[in-house]
Amino acid sequence: MGEPHRFSDYLVLGDGPVADILLWKKPNQSILILVLSTLLWLLFEKGGYNLLSFISNVLFFLVIILFFWAKSAALLNRPLPPLPNLEVSEEVAVKVADEMRVCINHVLSMAHDIAIGGDLKLFWQLALGFWFISYIGSLFNFLTLVYIGVLLCFSLPLLYDKHQALIDDKLYVVQRIVQMQYRLIDEHVLGKTPST
């Protein structure tokens, strides 16, 4: 037998600059983003700075810089700041609306299945999922949770890339255990007979 099939996590991550950064193919950019996110987290979390006031101040300074650049360009006969046409095209708006419509219809369909159809399995899945999210949310504030997500994004893909075979084996064992437990719950708690 040959080596088990190994898929490319580089392709899974988008096969581009995002994959390069998350898999540390461009270490300088990866370190820069990690250091900046750590500094922002320290500024907001430990420094007591507010996200809304930070965004407001950054935009305010940007407007001031562009205003004085435009005024000095007119006085010194220099080119204006290179700003693109700042508008949302109808094509982009329609594409976003279509994506949102699909997501909203999916959520409404699930709500209908639970409320009208009495889908007990889906109800328990959602209940456990919301409970888990609530529990995790009670342990951390939102900004710390986002920062933990950034740290995981920079570490998990790299670890998986280096140890894919070992991790796949362990995940397969966990999947089998979860499937067996799920079957037991289906049979005993929900009263369903196993399908043969």
Rank of each mutant, 00 (worst) to 15 (best):
I177C: 04
F60L: 10
W69Y: 05
G48S: 04
C153A: 14
K46C: 14
Y49M: 13
N28M: 04
A74R: 10
N50Y: 09
M1W: 10
I114K: 03
W24S: 02
G118Q: 07
L51F: 04
L11E: 07
L108Q: 12
N57Q: 06
N77W: 03
D20R: 05
G118D: 03
N77H: 14
F142N: 14
W41Y: 15
A111I: 10
R6M: 13
P84H: 05
G137I: 02
L52V: 10
L40H: 11
M180W: 07
Y135G: 00
L184V: 09
V12G: 00
L36F: 12
L32V: 05
L40E: 11
N28C: 02
G191W: 00
S195T: 13
A19D: 04
T38F: 10
H112M: 08
I33W: 14
N105G: 09
G14E: 09
I33G: 06
R183E: 13
K192D: 00
L139T: 04
E90S: 03
L42S: 14
I136K: 15
L166D: 02
V92T: 15
L52N: 09
N141C: 11
Y182S: 13
P84D: 11
L51I: 10
V174L: 15
G117N: 02
E99W: 00
G47L: 06
G14R: 12
N141R: 12
L32C: 11
F123E: 00
D161N: 10
N50A: 13
N105Q: 15
L145R: 09
V107K: 08
K46G: 14
T196R: 08
Q125H: 13
S134G: 10
A115H: 13
F130V: 05
D98V: 11
Q29D: 04
V35A: 14
L139Q: 09
L145Y: 12
V189F: 11
L75E: 10
P194V: 04
G48R: 01
D113A: 15
V150L: 06
L151C: 11
V146H: 01
R6A: 11
W24Y: 05
Y182K: 09
D186T: 09
D113P: 07
N105L: 15
P82C: 02
D15A: 06
L34C: 15
D168Y: 07
I31P: 03
S72N: 09
E99K: 08
D9G: 08
L75G: 08
L159E: 00
L151Q: 06
C103S: 12
P17N: 12
V35W: 01
D9Q: 12
L36M: 13
S53W: 12
I21C: 02
L126V: 03
Y160E: 03
R78F: 09
L108F: 15
L158T: 10
E187P: 01
P157H: 00
M110C: 06
H163S: 02
G2Q: 05
W24I: 05
A97L: 09
G149L: 02
L34E: 12
Y49P: 01
K170P: 00
L13G: 01
L66V: 11
N105V: 13
E99S: 14
V189M: 13
I104H: 04
F130M: 08
A115K: 14
Q179S: 05
K162D: 00
K71E: 09
G137T: 07
E3H: 13
V12C: 02
K26L: 03
